[in-house]
Amino acid sequence: MASIAEKVRKLRAQRGWTLKQLSAYTRVSISHLDAIEKGTRKSPSFQIMVQLADAFEVPIAYFRDDVAVSDHPSAADHAVQAAPAPQTDTALQGDAALSRLYDADTRRFIVSEQARPYVALAKQLAEQSQSAPALDTSALLQVIAAFIRDRETSYES
């Protein structure tokens, strides 16, 4: 059976990630990841294993010593999918999920000042749709209309 070190090394190689990129996805130091891959850190904490599983998009059970890589075909399938390399900008490294979900240009926009009103609108729409048991289209349209009115007012000022 493959060790945690071998599995992490294999997944990282399949993705074509450097230790620095994996560190950005997991928020685990490069030296700690290097020790895991070299096998000098044989029993990483559960939290670190969760962070690795999330970054590689594999089930946590994939890393068990008694589980062969072939026992989790979905894990291997996830591992070969290319993911965009995380940005070196610390504002963009903050959330591994954001890095996996959006391309670099979209992440830059999301964290930019000009995106604030749109992010606020998305948050309002999400809150509105969660508070109503059924989709209330008129309430959602009212939120959008208020957003447009506010934007028009700010352009006129």
Score class of each variant (00 low, 15 high):
71 D>P: 05
76 A>H: 05
41 R>K: 15
64 R>I: 01
78 H>I: 02
37 E>N: 12
41 R>Q: 12
42 K>P: 15
66 D>H: 09
54 D>F: 04
42 K>F: 05
49 M>P: 03
34 D>T: 14
66 D>E: 11
63 F>L: 07
51 Q>G: 04
72 H>E: 06
67 V>G: 01
58 V>P: 03
51 Q>K: 12
70 S>T: 14
34 D>P: 06
35 A>C: 10
52 L>Y: 02
64 R>S: 11
78 H>V: 00
47 Q>D: 15
51 Q>S: 13
43 S>V: 12
38 K>Y: 06
72 H>Q: 09
49 M>H: 08
48 I>D: 09
53 A>D: 02
54 D>G: 08
67 V>W: 05
45 S>M: 10
37 E>W: 08
53 A>C: 02
55 A>Y: 00
74 S>T: 10
42 K>W: 03
38 K>L: 14
78 H>Q: 10
75 A>G: 11
73 P>D: 06
68 A>N: 13
41 R>S: 15
66 D>K: 08
50 V>G: 00
44 P>T: 14
42 K>D: 08
68 A>K: 14
47 Q>I: 15
72 H>P: 05
67 V>E: 07
61 A>C: 06
50 V>H: 02
67 V>L: 11
63 F>C: 11
57 E>Q: 02
59 P>E: 08
33 L>C: 10
38 K>M: 14
72 H>K: 08
71 D>F: 02
58 V>E: 03
64 R>E: 12
69 V>H: 03
39 G>H: 12
74 S>A: 12
70 S>G: 03
35 A>D: 12
59 P>Y: 04
55 A>E: 01
73 P>A: 03
59 P>Q: 08
65 D>R: 07
75 A>H: 02
54 D>A: 10
49 M>F: 05
69 V>K: 09
48 I>T: 15
60 I>V: 08
33 L>M: 12
79 A>W: 00
66 D>F: 06
65 D>M: 05
66 D>P: 04
50 V>P: 00
67 V>P: 00
71 D>L: 05
54 D>M: 05
36 I>C: 12
79 A>L: 01
76 A>W: 07
64 R>Y: 07
80 V>Q: 04
38 K>I: 09
59 P>S: 13
75 A>T: 05
49 M>N: 06
68 A>S: 13
78 H>W: 00
36 I>G: 12
72 H>S: 09
52 L>E: 00
68 A>I: 04
47 Q>R: 15
71 D>M: 07
35 A>S: 15
50 V>C: 05
38 K>T: 10
57 E>H: 01
77 D>L: 09
59 P>I: 02
57 E>T: 00
78 H>C: 00
61 A>S: 11
34 D>A: 14
63 F>Q: 07
78 H>L: 02
69 V>D: 09
69 V>I: 10
72 H>G: 03
43 S>F: 07
73 P>I: 07
76 A>E: 09
51 Q>P: 02
59 P>N: 09
36 I>W: 06
57 E>I: 01
76 A>P: 03
73 P>M: 04
41 R>L: 15
68 A>H: 13
74 S>K: 06
69 V>Q: 11
37 E>I: 15
49 M>S: 04
46 F>V: 07
